[in-house]
Amino acid sequence: RELEKFANEFKVRRIKLGYTQTNVGEALAAVHGSEFSQTTICRFENLQLSFKNACKLKAILSKWLEEAE
């Protein structure tokens, strides 16, 4: 439930900031050390990743959002 809420909020905030899914994937290299594909970001936003992978990505995306805003 919390993950679903974060995924929805993330998408809204990403769009408000003017980032595409591809931009986010590339920008994550600075935060995490490796890029993520547009497909991975899309699957996260649509809750199509495994729970374990989504939880890992949530932590990375939270950190990125803090820096982007």
Rank of each mutant, 00 (worst) to 15 (best):
R1W: 12
E2K: 07
E2I: 04
E2Y: 05
L3I: 10
L3D: 02
E4R: 10
E4C: 06
E4L: 05
K5F: 07
F6G: 04
A7W: 05
A7H: 00
A7Q: 00
E9A: 11
E9C: 04
E9W: 13
E9L: 10
F10N: 05
F10K: 04
F10E: 03
F10G: 00
K11C: 02
K11W: 01
V12P: 03
R13F: 01
R14M: 05
I15H: 08
I15G: 08
K16G: 06
K16V: 02
K16R: 13
L17M: 07
L17T: 00
L17G: 01
L17K: 02
L17V: 03
G18H: 03
G18Y: 02
G18P: 05
G18S: 02
Y19Q: 11
Y19V: 02
T20W: 00
T20M: 01
Q21K: 04
Q21A: 11
T22Q: 15
N23H: 13
N23E: 15
V24L: 08
V24E: 00
V24Y: 03
G25E: 07
G25C: 13
E26D: 15
E26W: 07
E26Q: 06
E26N: 12
L28A: 02
L28W: 03
A29F: 06
A29G: 08
A30M: 10
V31L: 13
V31E: 13
G33F: 01
G33C: 03
G33L: 00
G33E: 02
S34P: 15
S34F: 08
S34G: 13
E35I: 09
E35Y: 08
F36Q: 06
F36G: 00
S37K: 07
S37T: 13
S37Q: 03
T39P: 08
I41G: 00
C42M: 15
C42D: 15
R43L: 11
R43D: 14
F44S: 00
E45Q: 03
N46S: 12
L47E: 05
L47M: 15
L47K: 12
L47N: 15
Q48E: 13
Q48C: 05
Q48L: 08
L49S: 06
S50H: 11
S50L: 06
S50R: 08
K52R: 13
N53Y: 15
N53H: 15
N53I: 13
N53C: 13
A54L: 13
A54Y: 09
C55G: 08
K56G: 09
K56E: 12
K56V: 11
K56D: 08
L57S: 06
L57P: 01
K58M: 11
A59G: 14
I60S: 06
I60T: 06
I60W: 05
S62P: 01
K63Y: 06
K63H: 14
K63W: 05
W64P: 05
E66G: 08
E66D: 13
E66A: 13
E66Q: 11
E67P: 04
E67I: 00
E67C: 09
E67Q: 12
E69T: 00
E69L: 04
